[in-house]
Amino acid sequence: MEVELKNISKTIHKTPILHDINLKFHSGAIYGLKGKNGCGKTMLMRTICGLMIPSAGTVSINGKVLMKDIEFPESIGALIENPAFLPQYTGYKNLCMLASLRSDIDKEAVAEAMRRVQLDPEDKRVYRKYSLGMKQKLGIANAIMGEPDIIVLDEPINALDEASVEQVKKVLVDLRERDHLIIIACHDREELEYLSDEIIEIKDGTVVCKQKEGVA
């Protein structure tokens, strides 16, 4: 699996958000995006997921150009900003409804994704009664269920306690070892350095540094 960004730029209301970004991402690695709020990390993630059309440049997934050859990446899971779950249903019901849109995710895969982030698929609490940490875990479970080839996570450890952070780290390392391509943004510098094989620093919508890190 390879994701390639060529000369990606994005301008909104005459304000440049991303400028001439060229990057390649490969399977079996975790890529960390580093930068201050508003630097363009989330916009870059949305562009990779096919949720934002660049003003210039192309995103290719295994040679297929988004918005030309394919509308969206064929196998991707994402947690970007606040996921839209229905408050009146349980976490399990929410994920089952989302999984029903895809033919490759059955109910057991939904339950397994929840268990991997330490959520109980049999919990009868509805989503509106979830704590912030539980809501974050459900967003991660949604991104990893069915084990998509590409996993994009924006601030995945926000609102998580220490034990939950450790569990999410284990899940991500396991997915990397099984040859998935993972892109994360994280404000916690130590956690980003621990998880990432390569850190990409973004400033004012431009890649300013790429740094290889040690593998966890």
Rank of each mutant, 00 (worst) to 15 (best):
T206E: 12
I53V: 15
N158I: 14
A141W: 05
L51W: 11
A159W: 05
S60V: 08
G77W: 04
A113S: 14
E147F: 07
R115W: 08
K34W: 00
V117Q: 01
L79C: 10
Y127W: 13
D69T: 08
E201A: 12
S131A: 10
G91I: 05
G57P: 09
I199D: 00
I140E: 00
M114A: 11
V152G: 11
T11Q: 09
I183F: 03
E190Y: 12
S9V: 06
H187K: 08
G91Y: 04
H187A: 08
I53C: 09
K36V: 11
K170P: 05
S75C: 08
E4Y: 04
C96W: 02
S27N: 13
K64I: 05
V3P: 00
I202T: 00
S60E: 15
P16A: 10
D204M: 12
K36F: 06
D154L: 02
R46P: 01
N142D: 12
K68Y: 09
E108G: 08
Q136V: 00
N7S: 14
A113L: 07
I157T: 15
R178F: 07
M114S: 10
E155N: 05
L98T: 03
P54Q: 09
T15R: 15
M43T: 15
C209W: 06
H180Y: 07
S55H: 03
N158D: 10
I200F: 04
D188W: 07
I12L: 15
V65H: 12
E198P: 02
A29K: 15
D123E: 13
D123G: 14
R125V: 06
L95M: 08
L119P: 06
I21S: 04
E81L: 10
M134E: 04
Y194Q: 10
I61N: 00
Y89D: 07
L119R: 03
K34P: 00
S103K: 15
D174P: 05
K24T: 10
F85I: 04
G38Y: 05
E198Y: 03
V65A: 14
S103P: 01
I30S: 00
V59R: 00
I151K: 01
G63N: 10
S75M: 03
M134V: 06
D204V: 03
I21V: 14
I21W: 00
